[in-house]
Design a protein around this nucleic acid. Structure first.
Lengths: 345, 345
DNA sequence: GTGAAAGCGCTAACAA
DNA sequence: TTGTTAGCGCTTTCAC
């Protein structure tokens, strides 16, 4: 601050000719202190606009009341809902939140994680970046004793505390629904190559096909890069130019599904009569599209809140540091018009 | 941390029989220190996994390298883009970010602002909540010498450093476009009552009508509460039940526009032939709707980055604290099919 | 009930 | 080139 230095305990103490220790105790309502002193101290503190210096408090307590959150993408509906859940839970326990994007590659993710830690957070909430293949640096963090909980995109190769959606089940539900609606040639737009939930969703898809004795067609399993509307659009056009066309697509997310629907509209394909589409994420806009979009709903709010609760629990009970608790939440199928061909068949 | 306490400068110093001061200097490559000591110190530091204790560093420096961000809504496309811009700019300058939602009312916003400040942020980036009517508490923050920059939804009654979109122009562009496309009875779904950009957008709308000599119809200016798809849907149904129906709507945001389009579809109204719709925000999904959505684009990324740059500049040059710089960015009209009736007329 | 003193871990002015 | 010392602002034992 420029001219006007911030008031400290010392300033208050000098005004009252008492010591900083007394002031400190008075402000925190220590039972030893007389009501008279308390009143005086609080009055002066108020008039000076005294606020405890958090740097000093943190240094004494060796904790900051700060939680670091690192995730691959902030600009994303589902991320936002998880963050919202975290914020809500954190506020209940008087924690503040620091958010950070993982960045473009494994190296930046690592740097950002440490930047957060070095900023003095009491713990870390991490959704693993799609670009991270080597998960061992998370173990370094764990071994240095930092509380860390993974959410949504959780590590696959190391033991850890984590919470995620049952992506396998999500993939299964989506695919099974399409099968039950009578679609026979169901394609799948996979998630990004490195994303932790890509494979489980794919496996759910494959398992459903298997359970219903539908032959897997490798041509119908499509890799995705960006997983945005545009890619859904173009990959759908591509698929529909092939000799063997699908009659349904289970998309890794709603954005791709929206692009898919736009492409099918361009091709004058009748949805859902001749083609079914299911997304993943259940974005609000799905309700207002033409047709409305069937999707798998994950409760981001719930995952966020539970991840935060787990982390705070660990921070307050360091004994639980290596419990490696694993929570899984259930996705649910939200059926709308993009896949519901009712009594057609 | 449980058993294993974190290593400190002292630990390194003892291993080498030197003082902590030397260790401190060696680690920061102070020119006075011999290369030999530097090498030894760094080796030990490395092997001990030494990391500077940020609490102590902050206390010494009276700064944290943290920026606090407070805004009304995290789960929101436009918010996300602004945050992304901020994160990018902050990383350039080695600042970390703390994010916080304003909360449900003026009181919680105030509390959250102070919580951020009390967590030791070096400065604050604030988008004013829709529920905040009394802006004087921001002045308290300013008067205590905290650097603060407002973005997007900026205070209207107090001098401050700020950056926002030219919402008046946005409203004007949207309305003028509808007029030029031949729509005559243009309604407006206003933004939330307390939102700082509601009035400018409304005024832009009114000015455009005036410039083109179109009579204002008060029945066509609709208050909004939530400003989500659902509200756009229902308010459109309501409007279309009236005797005097509009033939176009300029919506405060894309979500409402999406709801509006869904309602018009339900009513079998031909867009854009018989009805024009313009949104605000230019969400990606607008490109993939049926019809595609005309919207006003604001560069959230740019606003976020510039706000952050301004704040960091002020933090580094406290003399600029009360410069009350005001930056305005230009919105642009993105014409798509929801309002483009070409050579119809 | 209040004061004195130590210390959290680090940096920097001053000495040597 | 390195050591000594003081101090950032706060909390907490231990005296009195």
């Amino acid at each position: 601050m420029p001219a006007n230095k911030k008031p400290t305990l010392k300033d208050i103490a000098e005004k009252l000719n008492i010591t900083v220790a007394t002031v400190s105790r008075a402000l925190r309502n220590h039972p030893d202190i007389s009501q008279k002193i308390k009143d005086q101290v609080k009055l002066i503190a108020e008039s000076l606009h005294y606020r405890p210096n958090s740097f000093a408090v943190n240094l004494r307590k060796q904790s900051s009341g700060l939680i670091g959150i690192m995730l691959p993408k902030i600009v994303h509906y589902y991320s936002s809902t998880m963050i919202k859940g975290m914020v809500g839970e954190a506020q209940k326990h008087n924690y503040q939140i620091m958010i950070c994007e993982s960045g473009i590659n494994e190296e930046t993710e690592k740097e950002n994680a440490w930047a957060l830690l070095n900023s003095g957070v009491d713990g870390l909430l991490v959704s693993v970046s799609n670009n991270t293949f080597n998960e061992t640096y998370f173990q370094d963090i764990q071994q240095e004793g930092y509380p860390i909980v993974f959410f949504d995109k959780v590590p696959i190769s190391i033991p850890c505390n984590k919470i995620s959606t049952d992506d396998f089940k999500g993939g299964y539900l989506a695919t099974e629904h399409l099968i039950q609606q009578g679609y026979k040639k169901i394609a799948h737009f996979k998630g990004q190559a490195g994303a932790r939930n890509t494979i489980p969703r794919l496996h759910g898809y494959l398992k459903a096909l298997q359970d219903y004795s539908i032959q897997v067609n490798e041509q119908f399993i499509i890799d995705s890069i960006e997983c945005r509307e545009e890619e859904g659009y173009h990959k759908t056009l591509f698929l529909m130019q092939q000799k063997k066309k699908p009659d349904a697509i289970f998309c890794e997310n709603d954005e791709m599904a929206i692009g898919t629907i736009a492409a099918l509209r361009y091709l004058n394909v009748n949805i859902p009569h001749d083609f079914g589409v299911v997304g993943f994420c259940n974005m609000p806009v799905g309700n207002y599209m033409q047709p409305t979009l069937t999707s798998i709903a994950q409760s981001g709010d719930e995952i966020g809140a539970k991840a935060m609760a787990m982390l705070i629990d660990i921070i307050k009970n360091p004994g639980k540091l290596n419990d490696n608790i694993s929570l899984v939440t259930e996705p649910s199928l939200i059926i709308r018009n993009s896949s519901l061909r009712l009594n057609h068949h």
